[in-house]
Amino acid sequence: MKKLFVILALAALGVVLLWVVGKMPEMGDSRTPDKTHVVPRYIEDGVKEAGAENLITDVILNYRGYDTMGEVAVIFSALCAVIALLDREKRGVSRSAVDASQVRSSRIVRVTVRILFPVIFLFAVYLILHGENSAGGGFQGGAVIGASIIVFTLVFTLIESTRDIPLTLRVILESLSVLTFLAVGFIGVFKGVEFLTYILPGLSPGVAGALRSQVFMMSIEIAIGVAVGAIFTSIVFAMIKEENFELEPHIPEP
């Protein structure tokens, strides 16, 4: 019965999609509404108005900064959810199966990671800070930070990672990143313009557009990067504990 229902629902979905696919706007056609209605202004005036050379950054952090604030809130909710549900870290420290004595990666791996870790981290920082001018940004950089810490954890065990980056620190960082976003938004409010309008306290609106926006967007990028990194790390930490992960030393084939 349940299966039948699922099959029917999927069939209905498929029918609707097939029915609609032929009428979708042509890919790559420059005359379709999605390229003629809102986008031209972003492309033509984006750099001038919104301040960042990377147009995508202009859209997500300036034109639609409020959405991004929402996304940061999503990440924050995810962190709280993970902690509230899967928080076994304190208990897990003593009982963890991922223990230094049991699991020990090979020396080659450890040395490689030790060398690569700072480089990966640096690349992450570059991604975050350079997001305004080229590909990259807070989300991407944060993901790389998270990945670097995950690699570190997998090799050097959770105990060491949680000692260096304890839960409390992650929570505070996460909260601070939301607060940073809000603080940036509120500057506009205190200046008497709309929330998330980027105005430096000393300058009046319209002056030195690129400069004022860049300072704010930079801080937001950093906040997002920290938030994303923290959430990646936290989810993996919580999951490792929850699943009682048995890490076998991986010995590469000769």
Partner: peptide
């Protein structure tokens, strides 16, 4: 906007 932002502010303050 404050209607949305104020509870978010308090949400961020709560864990700290």
């Amino acid at each position: 906007v404050l209607i949305v932002v104020v509870p978010l502010l308090f949400a961020a303050l709560c864990p700290i």
